[in-house]
Design a protein around this nucleic acid. Structure first.
Lengths: 346, 346
DNA sequence: CTGTTAGCGCATTCAG
DNA sequence: CTGAATGCGCTAACAG
């Protein structure tokens, strides 16, 4: 038997056709399989001489661990589920990128799915994800209810991002969309604007920003904004059309958009109609799409640090993954805030 | 023992704390575990009466399959690795979205990673991905070389997307970037332009489009374009800065950008400088970012159907996954083409 | 620090 | 159409 291993390893590695397992490595290194496992996963528990021997054997055999087996034995998938409304052309891309980077650095991977996936509980839980990330109003919370399944803890860490919520499932990292709406309203009122027009996509968070904006306007007895909703998701086209419909009514003083995608679109439509921004029309966006405020000086916007949200989310998850099982859950409720970026004066 | 199962299932499902496995379901349904497995995975092999009994038991126990175990037993992860330069603010988002939708509909999931991940072979192969998707020039092909590992086929299906390549690893779905560069050059020459300026991000495909463009220009003895490269990835800011540097030299007639992100940025910078597009300056983009050509009438661009690429990639992978093991590999080499979209005349 | 024992939960492969 | 036996490859938990 030992002979067989030798044959396998002495043959040209490239032509080896049989698969190599922990046992093969162990035999070649003259140690127990468990020791090989330790060298690969928790090397600090193994004598350095043994480590060297084992790594040597790993190299000559070309061993690649089988996480399918490892996951089963340890009941840990090291897979994080990311559930977002969309990743296309999205304000979430910075967040996803940052999160991805944080997780992969620690050996975790992520699987993402977008909103239309209304998988059954069976499908959603069968991969035994180690953790989850979602926007708060992505799905009703009850859908996250964890069935009692084999080989997984009673609860998995979940981070709700891009929002703050009163009844979090677990951890929360984001900012208040009500606050955004209110502050934008105050900001614009202070600048002297009184006649507002809004364009929003049909997205829960966008609509909440708009509603809050309108409440704040009402408080100050300014005229009720004209309000136009486009179907989600945000596309450049949506903004154009919403804007056009509004123009049919009356030329507004300022147009408040629920996203930068819409705002850029309004900018474009204005340009093609010979309307000068900001001279004839002011435009306010949201989300700081690719540093929109910098790229488009005529645009005011609300800057959100999506990358920070992703980074913090990854950090929060990793901390929980690494915590001892009986550690009390730390409270993670981070308000990442936002910044209103005034257009560059011209 | 049977009693125990009954107790578990008759207790309030919500309060059950022990995990439920195939065996529990089988006992409750009075069948063998294998039958339960069949009902869940290949119901067509099971009598409908048995199916009903089993599904009933599945429901009352709240059973959720453990794919960690299933994957190991069947040596199939149903996970697809997606390797792209970036997903942030990216022309790939449509592609990823379409691919995701196609794969999840068939029970597959995807794990994505972006360029900076230079994981070791050990890490890259240990999850036993069922298939892979990458851009052709994302990594050198040799890095895809498959080590002989346990529990996985000698080769996995790989689709290279967003490019055509002479020596594909396996399947290819995309278009020729050389062709784009050449055709754009011809198009613009035909429109009467002679003095070109280019801005590109430092991306392999973008640079190839530019080089091809320049070769074509040279063929027609037009002036060599001024060429400005910004570091990757594309941001709106990159375009602005590249454009500004160019303006210091001379006001161009037309500016050709390696992506729509850059093009929109140039549009913005032009706007803030009082340069009218297209009257004073023509701008050409690439990638049809959010239907840029529609949203920004002054912009000409090259429309690429990213969603189609994603859809075809998913389809190609699924076909290979479902094929019998000894089926000869179908040749998949799809040129999805592109369309030059002329700006809307004003 | 290292080895041994004993599964993880399911699907493959036959036999019936 | 259904069942029984077997083991995927690895790691937890302990013993030494």
């Amino acid at each position: 038997m030992a002979k067989k291993i030798i044959e396998k390893t002495l043959a040209q590695p490239v032509s080896m056709s049989e698969s190599v397992t922990l046992i093969d490595v162990a035999k070649l290194a003259g140690v127990a399989p468990m020791t090989v496992s330790r060298v690969l996963n928790r090397p600090e528990l193994v004598h350095s001489d043994t480590q060297r021997k084992v790594m040597e054997a790993v190299r000559t055999t070309g061993y690649v661990p089988n996480l399918l087996a490892g996951n089963l034995a340890s009941s840990k998938s090291k897979l994080v589920a990311i559930l977002l409304p969309t990743i296309a052309n999205s304000i979430f891309s910075d967040t996803v990128q940052a999160m991805m980077d944080g997780l992969t650095a620690s050996g975790y991977r992520h699987c993402s799915a977008s909103s239309p996936i209304r998988a059954s509980a069976r499908k959603r839980w069968s991969r035994r994800f180690s953790g989850g990330v979602r926007t708060a109003s992505c799905w009703p919370a009850r859908r996250i209810a964890k069935p009692r399944t084999s080989g997984s803890p009673a609860h998995i860490p979940v981070v709700e991002i891009w929002d703050l919520t009163d009844k979090p499932i677990d951890m929360v990292i984001g900012f208040s969309h009500e606050e955004v709406g209110a502050q934008v309203a105050q900001h614009l009122l202070a600048k002297g604007y009184r006649k507002f027009v809004m364009v929003s996509v049909d997205d829960p968070r966008g609509l909440r920003r708009c509603e809050s904006f309108q409440r704040e306007i009402a408080k100050h007895r300014a005229a009720k904004p004209v309000f136009e909703v486009s179907p989600a998701p945000a596309t450049f086209q949506a903004g154009r059309e919403g804007f056009s419909r509004l123009l049919e009514k009356k030329m507004p003083e300022i147009i408040v958009c629920s996203s930068d995608t819409l705002a850029l679109d309004v900018l474009a439509e204005a340009g093609s109609r010979g309307i000068s921004v900001p001279r004839d029309l002011a435009v306010m966006g949201f989300g700081d799409l690719s540093s929109a405020a910098y790229a488009f000086p005529a645009l005011s916007t609300v800057r959100v640090d999506g990358a920070r949200i992703g980074k913090e989310a990854a950090k929060a998850l990793l901390e929980r993954f690494n915590a001892a099982p009986d550690t009390p859950k730390p409270v993670v409720h981070i308000d990442t805030g936002f910044t209103i970026v005034e257009r560059q004066s011209t």
